[in-house]
């Protein structure tokens, strides 16, 4: 593994440089996310009319939640690498990834790391605007911050594993764009980017509990704003850890099968 570190680092750098050449695309994404945060904030402010709290949160906490969860999701549901893998498999260029002395999955992870690093930079650049249209604020308490940090990392790992898994669909079917769009919608909804999972109607809330998506958005964001704390927060971290385990095993198994399926189109 250590022998492949320089190669992987180089992929990260190249991926960031590629993102740099597509700056306009990133700008457009920034606009989308900012609009999203703006609309949701207006909407929820209106819905709060005449109430002190909703789902146990004050308006300020609620808007902070909406902003944090959407900023996270901006980076986490980046589909650059899904799109890339799909193109590589479709054109058969994936042969070049498969012939490297470095594993295919580590290469994909490096691509994601590069793309995500660039996304984080673009988030930082956009923060002043977010401050105006949304609500930014410090974590609820030092304890919240201490729990948020690992929860965010876990959430990130889960997102990445989900992205690797869904990318591999390309090895089974060449028609993935509809699937990817559907996946993204489900992912964002169940992560709680439109409304907190606690506001979902009963059946959906149960479903959300059975899916990994709330671990990528809702859990870290509610820890940040202080809605999930103490034992509940620790339990939430444990759930995240469990998802990492499950998804890591699933990724290994799926990749094992995908590799045997590789036929490589054309040639």
């Amino acid at each position: 593994m250590t022998a492949s570190a320089p190669g992987l680092r180089r992929i990260v750098v190249a991926r960031m440089k590629t993102a740099m050449t597509y700056r306009q695309n990133v700008l457009l994404l920034q606009v989308i996310v900012i609009l999203n945060i703006f609309i949701l904030s207006r909407l929820w402010t209106t819905l709060f009319e005449g109430r002190d709290t909703v789902a146990g949160m004050t308006l300020h906490t609620f808007l902070l939640y909406i902003t944090v969860v959407n900023l996270q999701s901006w980076v986490f549901t980046d589909l650059t690498v899904n799109e890339y893998t799909y193109q590589r498999v479709r054109t058969g260029e994936v042969v070049f990834d498969l012939m490297r002395p470095i594993g295919f999955v580590p290469q994909m992870l490096a691509h994601m790391a590069g793309s995500h690093l660039f996304m984080v930079l673009s988030v930082v650049v956009a923060l002043p605007v977010v401050l105006v249209v949304g609500t930014l604020g410090a974590p609820a308490s030092p304890a919240a911050l201490a729990l948020y940090a690992p929860s965010l990392v876990f959430g990130y790992v889960i997102s990445v594993l989900l992205a690797v898994l869904t990318s591999m669909v390309a090895f089974w079917t060449v028609e993935t764009s509809g699937f990817t769009m559907l996946y993204r919608l489900i992912n964002q909804f169940f992560a709680g980017t439109m409304l907190p999972v606690s506001l979902f109607p009963e059946p959906l809330r149960i479903l959300a509990g059975l899916l990994p998506f709330q671990s990528t958005g809702y859990i870290p964001a509610t820890i940040y704003v202080g809605r999930t704390e103490g034992d509940a927060a620790l339990r939430a971290l444990a759930v995240q850890g469990l998802w990492i385990l499950i998804l890591a095993l699933a990724t290994t198994a799926v990749w094992h099968r995908a590799r045997r399926r590789v036929a490589v189109q054309g040639g």
Partner: peptide, 21 residues
């Protein structure tokens, strides 16, 4: 019929990648 070169980046970048890998 295909290329292993990084489409959007200068050719040199692909060589660097090969060197590192």
């Amino acid at each position: 019929q295909r290329t292993q070169l990084w489409w959007d980046l200068p050719l040199r970048e692909s060589f660097r990648l090969v060197g590192a890998i």
